[in-house]
């Protein structure tokens, strides 16, 4: 059984459908990213999964507990750590007091709570500032405290809603590296983001959401499924003889840009040597062979564009 199992989950606010028939699974230890434009339903999805709002129809289970069931909702909230899109710390309280409060609410025993607060504050370079009011902190420091707050009870599932939004590049990097560390430790993470670079670096799989879930795959497979697998062979100069030799091998698609031959292939690893051989036999001098990689951003934009 997966950590998150979502089936036909739908949320309507009056006549407006915010989330429409969402179906996906997240395995234990997986980092799953939800990508989508503003208003795509990402935060609504997270709120439903964290039992903060109800669903209109469909079902979802977190580690076997159903989100629509009142009796299960406390158990679900206990096993989730939420980093909301706003840090939402108590500005008058110190970093330590903020974490201690949430540790108590998550029912951490006192000894364990103290240990974990010290561990996270040291790990996030905030131990020296532990007794300062959070109002004195920079945005990046506050975000670190918010992440520590979500982890204070050692949750089985960490849910993060735009964890690096509004952070400067340096703070974003610190947060991103911390998430990667959690990933290495095997923590299951559901990450809402529209930072595509972040999603590509961190997530095992991503789902592109625009009210409906448009596609789910690993970042690499997603690119392949959208663009196909393309090889680029750069030749010193392209002659008709070379093109004839290439076409005789019947690639799925062929495009020529200046001195580059761009081929769409079903299995590049198996087919690339044949094309290289053919070009060389036709008198071509190959400068390099590479895989065409449009990147997640182009892929995301293409998927979103296709829905318009």
């Amino acid at each position: 059984m997966g950590m998150i199992e979502v089936k036909n989950l739908t949320k309507k606010f009056g006549d407006v459908t915010a989330v429409d028939g969402l179906t996906f699974n997240v395995a234990e230890g997986e980092v799953f990213g939800l990508l989508g434009p503003n208003g795509a339903g990402k935060t609504t999805t997270i709120r439903m999964l964290c039992c903060l709002i109800s669903s209109t129809s469909g079902e979802a289970q977190i580690a076997g507990y159903s989100i629509g069931n009142d009796a299960d909702s406390l158990a679900i909230r206990k096993m989730i750590g939420l980093v909301a899109d706003n840090v939402g710390l108590y500005e008058e309280l110190t970093a330590y007091e903020n974490l201690d409060y949430y540790g108590k609410l998550y029912e951490c025993p006192e000894g364990e709570r103290k240990e974990r607060i010290e561990y996270f504050l040291k790990m996030l370079d905030l131990w020296e500032e532990r007794d300062q009011p959070v109002s004195d902190f920079s945005k990046g420091m506050k975000q670190k405290v918010a992440i520590a707050r979500a982890l204070i009870h050692d949750p089985r599932l960490l849910v993060m809603d735009e964890p690096t939004a509004n952070l400067d590049p340096e703070a974003s990097r610190v947060v991103r590296e911390f998430i990667l560390k959690l990933k290495k430790e095997g923590k299951t993470i559901l990450l809402n983001t529209h930072n595509l670079d972040e999603a590509q670096r961190i997530c095992d799989r991503i789902g592109i959401l625009k009210t409906k879930l448009l596609t789910v795959n690993t970042p690499d497979e997603l690119e392949k499924s959208v663009w196909g697998t393309k090889s680029v062979i750069q030749v010193e100069s392209i002659s008709p003889r070379i093109l004839t030799a290439v076409m005789e091998l019947k690639p799925k698609d062929l495009r020529v840009e200046e001195n580059r031959i761009i081929l769409t292939l079903a299995d590049p690893q198996a087919e690339n040597p044949d094309f290289v051989q053919a070009i060389v036999s036709a008198g071509g001098r190959i400068q390099f062979v590479t895989q065409l990689n449009p990147g997640l951003e182009e892929t995301y934009l293409k998927v979103i564009e296709e829905t318009k």
Binding site: L74, L82, A84, N86, G88, Y90, Y106, A146, A150
Partner: peptide, 14 residues
Amino acid sequence: VQKSLEPLLATPTT
């Protein structure tokens, strides 16, 4: 106002 209600409501507190 402090936007702390969502994290609070996300805890196992009734």
